[in-house]
């Protein structure tokens, strides 16, 4: 089965060591995710594309305990088989905090400030039979 990204331009693809693709302001160096034109910090209109750090620390988190409404959610929304998933912000040192799915969904195994690393996870299988991938952060220990 082939794998395809949930959307082009969100993370490097294909890649064994994926990175999120963001923007950096050419005036004040502020880092944003996903890419955007215009800087919310200094109001500059000039940004350039950068690849973000792969590792960071968990800033805060929750567990998505019920199926999100579909659409827009593209993953499994069947209440009978839905698997809760973690969501958090990971602070990438010197860059920004990115909102992300987490590979861990057990509250006992998540804690603020723990070390995390970017990975890709399957989200759903599309009509062509391809496995659609999105990004998530995984605890490194």
């Amino acid at each position: 089965m082939a794998q395809v990204p949930v959307e082009e331009g969100v993370f490097t693809w294909p890649s064994d060591e994926p990175r999120l693709i963001g923007s950096q302001c050419t005036e004040c160096d502020n880092v944003m995710f996903p890419t955007q034109s215009g800087c919310p910090k200094c109001s500059s209109s000039s940004t350039e594309q950068i690849e973000l750090a792969r590792k960071g620390t968990l800033w805060t988190w929750t567990i998505q305990g019920y199926p999100p409404k579909s659409p827009p959610y593209a993953g499994n929304d069947d209440p009978k088989t839905f698997e809760p998933f973690g969501v958090g912000y990971v602070e990438l040192p010197g860059q920004c905090k990115v909102e992300t799915r987490l590979t861990e969904n057990d509250p006992e195994k998540l804690s603020i400030d723990m070390e995390m690393e970017l990975t890709l996870v399957p989200l759903y299988t599309n009509d062509d039979g391809d496995e659609v991938m999105t990004f998530a952060f995984a605890p490194t220990t």
């Binding site: 929750t62 999100p68 593209a74």
Partner: peptide, 24 residues
């Protein structure tokens, strides 16, 4: 109403924000 990777991936939920803000 978010049909980009953000909504598709199961984020874009107001409830998650409140969970994350109060958790911290």
């Amino acid at each position: 109403d978010n049909s980009t990777w953000y909504g598709k991936s199961g984020m874009a939920l107001t409830t998650q924000f409140f969970g994350m803000k109060i958790n911290r």
